[in-house]
Structure formats: structure tokens, C-alpha cells
Amino acid sequence: MGSVSVEDIDVDFLALIYDIIKCVERENTESAQAKRSEFQESSQKIQEFHRKLDVTRDQIRKLPGIDYSKEDQIKKLEALRKQLVLKKKLLQKYKDMCALEGVKQYLNPSNAN
């Protein structure tokens, strides 16, 4: 599954909707022969509009990082930060374990006091 960015999504629906409405309105006013060609054009544009909506839906489904609301996402980010801090502390604790205190005191008796 290729990842999609927000810039890839075409947000310009209004122009196409405007074209469709214009075609449909012309269809109502013109003669029978012109009507047929306008009908074909408008149905083609409607098909195109549907295709565009489907493509947009697919792109939205592929967008990464939008599975949560922003508030939830920020909460998760904070939780991760907290987790990282705790893990760093734990690592530091392991590295300065009391098992080595005796050796430290033996090596640097002045620092220990």
C-alpha cells in the first residue's frame, strides 16, 4: 500500500459540480437534439464526479496518521514521550546500579563523601 500525502488529494469539487449543474440546466432549455448531446455530456460529468469522489475516498483511506482525532493523537504522543523518559531513567538507574557503589567508593573515597 503506497502512502499518500494530503497534497495529493484534489479538493476542487465545486468547479465540476458547477459544470454539471450548467449542463443539466442547458439540457432543460435546449431543443431535442441538443438535449441529447447535453444529456450525454452531463451524465459523463456526473460519472467523472463519482469517480473523483471514489478516488478521494481511496486516498483518504490511505492517508497515514489520521486514524485518531488530533486530541487522541496528542495524548498518545505525550504517552510515548513519558514512556521514553521513564525508559531513559530506568536505563540510567541500571547503569548507576548500587552494585557498583562499593567499587566507586573504593576508587574515589573523596567523591563518595
Binding site: Y68, Q73, L80
Partner: peptide, 25 residues
């Protein structure tokens, strides 16, 4: 969509943090 763009940036940060958490683990 703008919100999604912001969330994508947050997601990137989250991925970085998650990889760091994994390394620490």
C-alpha cells in the same frame, strides 16, 4: 485536510518516538 496535514507531522514525531522507545527497550 489541513488538520490531517498537522496530524501527519505529529504521526512522524510519534514514529520517531516509537523507534526510540523500541531502541531503549
Amino acid at each position: 485536510l489541513n488538520l490531517a496535514c498537522e496530524q501527519q507531522e505529529i504521526d512522524q514525531k510519534m514514529l520517531q518516538l516509537a523507534s526510540e522507545v523500541y531502541k531503549h527497550d
